[in-house]
Nucleic acid binder design. Structure first.
Length: 493
RNA sequence: GGGCCCGUAGCUCAGCUAGGUAGAGCGGCGGGCUUUUAACCCGUAGGCCCCGGGUUCGAAUCCCGGCGGGCCCGCCA
């Protein structure tokens, strides 16, 4: 590793003086966060020290030298503390401080807390200690490029307050999802990430090799088929929050690994799941935002989304409204020419009626769904894992939740008919043979599990990263994933 | 998979259209300043202009090839 020569010399200098630039321990009396809290309670902002013999620590962000009295900002856990250093208190250690300490170093400081004339909470420093000498010059935090931030996220978290706050909110959301589901009586479970057959979604997988078995296995693309095995096995309300992996493109809404919530609920159907989904979003709005009104930046306009009101409407109704004509009365040829005018290609390039309707819906109607909308009753061809509709032939009991033009949830009355499952998987095999790389593979063990008998079940999937995008007003998935995928060349640099 | 843009000091970038001594701000270093908020003032060092080839008296600049990065469109959550 190549380090900054000047900083290396400082380390040498410190060691020569018998000072360890990386000591084992520094005892603090308060964190910076705690000191700021104390400062907030001092409404009169006393100019004289009101708390003495304080010891705290943080990272040096900014040094402002003024001759014999200087100011230094240190940060910890996203909170700033200003230090005031004076020759009067530090004597010869004053000059030493500026010879030894650079931006980015982590230091411990002891002294007295007071407010400056400008009203800034400040520590009058009486002693200091190097806790970790940094060897890399911190970047100009206002000018960090997105690529740099994503490749070296720890720097982003340190110097970009928004990135830090986005992560804090991400983990609040995940914690509140768990709280909600646990209260609803769901059990959090785990399923394998390495699987002999991938499934539960239509996507290209990552392949791996198990040396011991000398077999090719896959990284999971969803949680579905194993969670349903829990349902078969007699666990009636289960959920998992975990990473899934899809070997597809990387862009502002797609990362090859992303976090998915899936839950399965025995003796429930997709209507029950819709009700549950509404309660979940309402819970999150209350706990995370403190209101059901959410502001989101959509393109160049800001929209206010009401998370207290969910519309329920069928896909056919929405598409018919948009086209100004009944979709069911349109011929396959009409649909196909409509596809062509919009430059659309259906899944696997199969111009099947149901797939064309889904594609047209995605392209034409989805962007208009700004307020929370449950879109119900999809064509059978869109998924091999959903139960046929109880009253509408050719459709399945599926819904997707759209907010701000994005998909946030996908749910089914789950297919539990083993004979139909076998047939639909076989049809997917045919799609794969015809070149659809995202067709669903046949999972023999899963069909066998259904053969043992799975109760009627409702299931739900929610992409956590996109949910965090919504709740943090971010338009790029890279902002809400702690370590988004970027080229390794960019990371290694 | 199709189209567009970029690569110059440690960092952010100007210079390229119209070829003629390599520039600024920040950061570094030296000096000044005892309540500043990205402090300020004075001085100073710092370059394989991504790599290779071509055109030319002369290339950061024009042309060709390569490498690296980004953006848009199509497909996927």
């Amino acid at each position: 590793m190549k380090w900054d020569e000047r900083r290396l010399k400082i380390i040498e200098y410190l060691r020569d003086k018998g000072i360890n630039p990386y000591p084992q321990k520094y005892v603090i009396t308060h964190s910076i966060v705690q000191l700021r809290k104390i400062g907030l309670e001092k409404n009169d902002r006393p100019k004289d020290p009101f708390l003495t013999n304080v010891r705290t620590a943080g990272r040096v962000a900014n040094l402002r030298r003024h001759g014999k009295a200087s100011f230094v900002d240190i940060f910890d856990e996203g909170e700033k503390l200003q230090l005031y250093l004076r020759v009067n208190e530090l004597q010869n250690r004053y000059e030493q401080f500026f010879a030894e300490v650079d931006r980015g170093d982590i230091i411990g400081v002891g002294g007295d807390l007071f407010f400056t004339a400008k009203g800034e909470l400040t520590l009058l420093v009486r002693d200091y200690q190097m806790l970790a000498k940094s060897l890399v010059e911190p970047p100009d935090w206002s000018k960090m490029s997105p690529e740099f931030r994503y490749a070296h996220r720890y720097v982003d978290f340190l110097y970009n307050d928004r990135a830090r706050q986005t992560m804090e909110r991400r983990y609040t959301i995940i914690r509140e999802i768990r709280n909600f589901l646990n209260l609803e009586g769901f059990l959090e479970v785990e399923t394998p990430i390495l699987q002999p057959v991938y499934g539960g979604a239509l996507a290209k997988p990552f392949k791996s090799h198990i040396n011991y078995l000398d077999e090719d296995w896959y990284l999971r693309i969803s949680l579905e088929l194993y969670l349903k095995r829990y349902i078969v096995g007699g666990f009636n309300k289960v959920y998992e929050i975990g990473k899934v992996f899809r070997n597809e493109d990387i862009d502002v809404t797609h990362n090859p690994e992303f976090t998915l919530l899936e839950l399965y609920w025995a003796y429930a159907d997709y209507i029950d799941i819709m009700d549950l989904t509404e309660r979940l979003f309402s819970h999150l709005a209350n706990r995370v935002l403190g209101t059901h009104e959410l502001k989101y930046h959509l393109g160049d306009r800001e929209v206010v989304i009401d998370l207290g009101k969910f519309r329920r409407v069928s896909m056919f109704e929405l598409l018919s409204d948009h086209l100004g004509k009944d979709v069911e009365s349109m011929s396959d040829e009409e649909l196909k020419s409509l596809m062509k005018t919009h430059g659309l290609v259906p899944r696997g390039s199969m111009y099947v009626r149901g797939l064309m309707i889904e594609k047209l819906f995605d392209k034409l109607v989805t962007p208009e769904l700004v307020q929370p909308t449950f879109v119900t009753d999809y064509p059978q061809e869109t998924t091999p894992l959903c139960k046929p509709h109880r009253s509408k032939p050719g459709l399945v009991e599926r819904f997707e939740l759209y907010i701000a033009g994005m998909e946030f949830a996908n749910a089914y009355t789950e297919l539990n008919d083993p004979i139909l499952q076998d047939k639909l998987f076989n049809e997917e095999q045919e799609m794969m043979r015809r070149g659809d790389q995202e067709a669903h593979p046949y999972d023999r063990d899963f069909v066998r599990a259904l053969g043992y008998g799975m109760p009627p079940t409702g299931g739900l999937g929610i992409g956590i990263d996109r949910l965090v995008m919504l709740f943090t007003n971010n338009s790029s998935i890279k902002e809400v994933i702690p370590f988004p995928m970027v080229s390794s060349k960019l990371i290694e640099e």
